[in-house]
Computed example of a mutant assay.
Amino acid sequence: MSRQELFVAAARKCLSVGRKSLSVSQSLDLAAQVSAVDLGLKPALLYDSNGAGADEVQQYLSSLQSSQLVSKSLLTLDLNGNSLIVNALAVQPNAERQFNLNNVAVIDVCHTLEKPTIADSLRGDTKNVTQDLLLLLSGLELTAAEKPHCVGEKSHGWNLCTLFGFLLGFPVTYWFDQTKSFENCLSMTPLVVTTASATWQAESGDHKCCLYSFSFPADLFKALQSNLEHWRLTLKERFKLQDVLKDLTFGQSTVTLPSVCL
């Protein structure tokens, strides 16, 4: 079997839920995403292709590693029921660098605000949760794990929306006071959706996939320009160090929605 066929077979075998399995197109897209994590182009991937849980994602990852399709640096992290594939060699230093150098803009979208504002990323609650995350990531071991790494009860109070921004390598992330409400002030707020896409070179043909997709309020564009430019330049530099993915492109579009779920 070709590498492409091995990727597809592993996805369709390990990630099936009931009688439903991923399509060939979904399997190829996942393969490209996982390859990007393995190459260090993105520190982590939040798995949301279907209802497969962390155990199934770990089986998929173990199958890829057994076939030597990806390295042993990839691990499955179960974060309060959310399954992430992380590059243990990249995710912790990347999150630490983003936080310490203030490369990630934290946008306060609490429902009591008239409009979103840029918050202090070193504020007490965000700082404490991020430090807990960094401590967790520093303890990940590069072993042939048969089970996902599960985060305990401590994560129940974490703002996962904020943490996912740090984990997934976004230059911006949202924050809201979830102890008061999970609602936000993004209703009818013009949002700039930024993407980064690339082409995965497969045996039977190239497969285009979206590596990054995140949004931020259009009114904050100028204030966020340095964060966005640093993210683009860093990704371009990393892209030059590999030859599995090609044709890196960036895109932007503006959307206005009656409600935004974070």
Rank of each mutant, 00 (worst) to 15 (best):
246 K>T: 15
220 L>Q: 06
98 Q>E: 04
44 A>N: 02
253 S>P: 00
85 I>C: 03
122 L>P: 00
11 A>R: 08
185 C>R: 12
104 V>D: 03
158 W>S: 08
155 S>P: 04
45 L>S: 01
141 E>A: 13
257 L>K: 14
86 V>N: 01
198 A>I: 01
152 G>F: 00
109 V>H: 03
65 Q>G: 08
144 A>N: 13
214 F>L: 09
211 L>I: 13
179 T>K: 13
76 T>F: 01
151 V>C: 13
126 T>R: 03
162 T>M: 15
180 K>N: 07
214 F>P: 05
38 D>F: 09
107 I>P: 10
80 N>S: 13
65 Q>N: 07
79 L>R: 10
60 Y>V: 06
21 S>R: 15
121 S>A: 11
173 T>G: 08
100 N>A: 10
129 V>E: 13
246 K>H: 08
239 F>K: 05
158 W>C: 08
27 S>P: 10
17 V>T: 14
125 D>H: 07
48 D>Y: 03
77 L>Y: 02
242 Q>P: 06
66 S>M: 06
18 G>P: 11
251 G>I: 08
219 D>L: 09
15 L>D: 04
256 T>A: 09
154 K>M: 05
209 C>D: 03
258 P>Q: 11
119 A>N: 09
50 N>K: 00
141 E>F: 02
83 S>V: 08
137 L>R: 09
260 V>R: 10
20 K>R: 15
67 S>T: 00
79 L>N: 03
154 K>C: 04
132 D>Y: 03
37 V>S: 02
150 C>N: 03
42 K>A: 01
